[in-house]
Write a protein that binds this DNA or RNA. Structure first.
Lengths: 238, 238
DNA sequence: TTACACGTTTGACTTACATCAAAACTCAAA
DNA sequence: TTTGAGTTTTGATGTAAGTCAAACGTGTAA
């Protein structure tokens, strides 16, 4: 985990609309630049933070791809999320002043460090930022609710369909193709996230492929029939 | 859902330490009383709020017991939590200005209505309250993480053991017995929360009972051997 | 180029839990 | 005190996904 001293401003960042509230004038925006202390690089495979680390900051992902996970004493891992550019990690640390999950870079990444003290100070000054922080946290709660629905009620095919649709939708919002992409995570990591074994993930990919819904080759995925995926995920809306 | 005009102060509330930050002097505490606008009664079986309702307030439970749930178009329900006195519901509504889940009273209840505008206004004035709100939201994120672990990695017995231990721990923190209690929810609701069918919940109860770990009679539960439960939930810590 | 490690796919078999069904219990209204 | 609706328990059977195992691909380093 390398630290750079380059000070970069949110005001010029092309991800601004993803991680920052909108509708500020020039001078307010400059004040808001103060949330970000530094920017750091995280090498593929290394931890941005780990279970037990003292909590100091939230991290806005600038480039790269992360997974967050928790694990039991006996070594079982549960992936709790995959995060990409413009998304925030670290919210789990606020409640106990230390992190309860691990954030691991799935590819070389760069993150903006936002010391939480700065976030809170500026939140008191700027109601728009305050509201933004609250929404961020609420969004995470709602996201986890929908994963609970996946794990509690859905079958393997429904889970994977929902996963692919969600992934492609987020990538599309970042200017990438809405039909093809490279998975940044292994079958095992997808399985952990979706509460199934890697073999089941692989079989379900193969099934979708045989049915002409997607094209898969290792980590390359191309969605040929998005409506079929939507239908699998939620039969009533199609 | 009946509205009472009785204005009740947090400063005199015996649940203060559960829903409010501590360490205020007299005058600050009086100011904080302003977060709560009114107190309302919710009849057993009726909704405090439902999916789609506009979001205006958070609710602190004063008495009674709630479940929160989300449902799919095709009618599948996922219980996302059970809440008791001193706990807060409604955080899901912040992100989209409307609620995404339902909060239903499992017994006659009384809740303190905290208009979110008040919460935000006072948060800017009192850093301690601000911090408290952030911790509340972070706690909910961490709680959901641990449910993900249950649903993604644990077997039926582990899930039910974890559920019982969590329930009894929270009841104990509120001054109730740490060994016996009455379940407020049905087998089906427990099953929905834990991602299993009601029959499996019932069978697992029976199994624990046969093994002398608990005594169950319908909704009455008495924990005879808490260590055995802990061992089932997490073999390595015992 | 070969060799090796690691991830992925596929097949054969097992199992934990779901499903279907019926009986037993609880409680409230007639 | 019956009746009936809703909930819980228990049994018999089915199945989606897990487990075990082997083959196949891909990338990397000698």
């Amino acid at each position: 985990m390398l630290t750079e001293t380059i000070k970069v401003a949110c005001s010029n960042c092309n991800l601004r609309e993803l991680c920052m509230p909108m509708g500020f004038d020039q001078t307010e925006m400059q004040k808001l630049d103060e949330v970000v202390a530094t920017r750091i690089k995280v090498k593929q495979g290394s931890n941005l933070f780990s279970h037990g680390d003292p909590f100091t900051s939230l991290y806005a992902i600038r480039t790269g791809f992360f997974k967050t996970s928790i694990s039991t004493e006996d070594g079982r891992e549960q992936v709790t999320g995959f995060q990409m550019a413009g998304e925030i990690v670290g919210l789990d640390g606020i409640v106990n002043d230390h992190h309860t999950c691990n954030a691991i870079a799935l590819e070389d990444a760069e993150v903006c460090v936002m010391p939480f003290a700065n976030v809170e100070d500026l939140s008191r000054e700027f109601p728009v930022l305050q509201r933004h922080v609250h929404k961020m946290m609420s969004r995470e709660i709602v996201r986890e609710n929908s994963i609970l629905m996946l794990l509690g009620n859905m079958r393997a095919e429904e889970r994977l369909a929902a996963f692919l649709l969600n992934l492609v939708q987020r990538l599309h919002a970042r200017g990438f193709s809405q039909s093809e992409f490279i998975l940044r995570m292994s079958r095992e990591e997808i399985g952990s996230y979706l509460g199934m074994k890697l073999e089941t993930v692989s079989r379900t990919f193969s099934k979708f492929s045989e049915e002409g819904i997607i094209e898969v080759k290792q980590r390359y995925v191309r969605i040929l029939n998005p409506d079929a995926l939507k239908k699998i995920f939620n039969p009533s809306t199609c």
